[in-house]
Design a protein around this nucleic acid. Structure first.
Lengths: 354, 354
DNA sequence: GATCCAGTCTGTATCGATACAGAGACTAGC
DNA sequence: GCTAGTCTCTGTATCGATACAGACTGGATC
């Protein structure tokens, strides 16, 4: 059995409080006594105050939770998520706070339980697909949180860091529209829950539940509306899951149809890279010339020459954690919009004459 | 104030124990009473048992710590570390366990404190440069841990997952030696603590403190010893930090010396990629033909055509977490050596005739 | 010499839950 | 009808610390 604070107190012949102070409030006792206590602790093999007991009594834990709706192991394969985590990590480091990554079981009941059981002082909620239940639990626990996806019903006091998804998406779509593309496919992850991979008909963009996806698709639609293309004239393609292979699989069939798209606008770089994979997989003589755009500007995008929209990933994570760790006094300052920029590379070009 | 378990008990008119059972041991009370309790909890806004209090009483936390000596934010920039984390995450997911990432302050005293204060049930220690103090603290706390770097003084009961660093390094060096290279530079991160960047003279490879680095350098030396090259005839180059720019900076000068190396063997892919960066930065007409090898086979290595040694990163993380989460009954099974493979790509070739 | 104060240390209450032994009620079995 | 056994539920002890109010010293102040 590991010795407790009491054991050290007994060994030195002082009260428990004094030993506690030796660790947590050195100014509350003489230096010599403190040394005597720490020596005794060393000899007894006392490893310092039990973190759990300390947290219980103090009322805070010293760590923040990071919540992904997706599988935790998936999060590490998403380059944007990794940069986000790096940002959170940098802020946590500065504050001497730990980061708790909480895996969420697939069933919502279990997932709620997981969020209820996380020993943290607050949460960074990374763009949870269907985040409402998670925010409910966090609110019920009375914990602060910062979310990275704009939500329609966000309370005025809710902290947020993100981008203007719609405007950003519009900028890249306007670029594509400006190149003359009119047969266009929009590729997005989980457009509707449980929808199959491939082309999908959705009455209006407002049917899309996930706010980030909805925002980006709206921006795409905006740009094409300006050149006279209706929502119904755009081909919406669903991908179940934000991964290259999934995107490749979902898009592959489209290029063999009668009037294939001349441009594919993807809701993320990962999806766009999957489209490029699908194109590269075709024999050279049967490889259509298609403009492809992504979103995020992850490190891989530059190497692939992908036209995309840059958003500052690490910054997003860093600010999310900072909004959580020292909240601004001014509620308005708790709502941060980061800048984005259109990055034009080789993956987009004018419509080929056929 | 958030309601407590007691508040719910009072509201329903049952004992605290019964409410606790409603959450943690549903089989201990009738279904109807359980529903009544959960309803009341909902109405009162009780968020479920306080995780910290529960951990204190139960004696375990339900999360494992991951320790990096380096900066936490750095860990996310190292592709090998990220794959490792993904593996840990996958295992954690399966076990319903959270992962706590603990940033370590630069000063050892503070860092010890951080490890002492982490509320976890055990640690995965990721190849900590100077890990002894960390392992001391963990042992003192009586927590289990799994390390990923072979240590000379490892107790027989200590769990470990790794590779045969020396043999793996030897395989890639033998490949380079077989191509005829005799003017060879070995590039490694933090060969000696606080050593400057650039060429460094070290009497023998056994002077190198970090076991992983020492193992790899030994393997390199082994292969060249077989073709008659002494340790002293190899150029050892120190890089302070495992990053591409640091490697590029450390190696750059070497190519302008009288008899520049025809091959550079790096202790990691990241360093090797830095070497390639340094070469690419030179004007084409002044770009020496140098064979470069890495170590790890991170995703970027394939794209760069880097010859390297593959080790299963995700597997390493997964197994580390699993050894921690359900320890094998047999102590020998707690010591896992993963396979490695030489991956020859375009970055190595025969010695150019000059 | 009384008062005040700063510096040390102690004692009790408390953080919010779970473990465990056991009390009642009720059904079976013989 | 009595013992056993199963279901439910209760009560007390406990997990390992910190907060806070107060007690005791020994100068400094006037």
């Amino acid at each position: 059995m590991k010795p407790t604070l009491q054991a050290v107190a007994d060994a030195v012949g002082v009260s428990r409080s004094t030993v506690s102070n030796a660790y947590s409030r050195p100014d509350q006792l003489s230096a010599t006594l403190r040394e005597r206590i720490l020596d005794a602790a060393r000899q007894l093999g006392y490893p310092g105050p039990n973190p759990t007991a300390r947290s219980l009594r103090r009322g805070f834990v010293g760590s923040i939770g990071v919540l992904f709706t997706s599988q935790l192991s998936y999060a590490f394969t998403d380059p944007f998520a990794v940069r986000f985590l790096a940002g959170v990590g940098a802020a946590a480091e500065r504050h001497g706070t730990s980061m708790l990554l909480v895996p969420l079981p697939p069933a919502v009941t279990d997932a709620r339980r997981a969020v209820e059981n996380a020993a943290v002082d607050g949460f960074c909620v990374y763009c949870v697909a269907d985040e409402e239940w998670a925010l409910d639990v966090i609110r019920q626990r009375g914990l602060p949180f910062v979310s990275t996806a704009a939500r329609d019903d966000a309370g005025a006091d809710e902290r947020f860091v993100g981008i203007d998804e719609r405007a950003a998406a519009r900028s890249v779509a306007a670029h594509v529209a400006g190149l003359g593309h009119r047969r266009v496919a929009l590729l997005a992850d989980s457009v509707l829950p449980d929808a199959p991979a491939g082309p999908l008909t959705v009455a209006g963009v407002d049917q899309v539940p996930h706010p980030t996806t909805r925002g980006r698709l709206s921006g795409f639609a905006d740009a094409f509306a300006e050149v006279g293309l209706d929502w119904a004239e755009l081909t919406l393609v669903n991908v179940p899951g934000n991964s290259r292979p999934a995107a490749a699989a979902a898009i592959a069939g489209l290029f063999d149809q009668p009037a294939p798209p001349t441009a594919v606008l993807a809701g993320s770089d990962v999806l766009a890279l999957g489209v490029l994979d699908a194109l590269a997989a075709r024999p050279a003589h049967d490889r259509p010339s298609v403009s492809v755009t992504g979103f995020d500007d992850v490190p891989e995008a530059a190497a692939a020459g992908l036209t995309t929209v840059r958003q500052p990933a690490e910054e997003k994570g860093r600010i999310a954690a900072e909004l959580l760790l020292d909240p601004p006094a001014d509620a308005a300052a708790g709502h941060v919009l980061l800048p984005t920029a259109l990055v034009v590379r080789g993956s987009t070009g004018p419509v080929p004459r056929s």
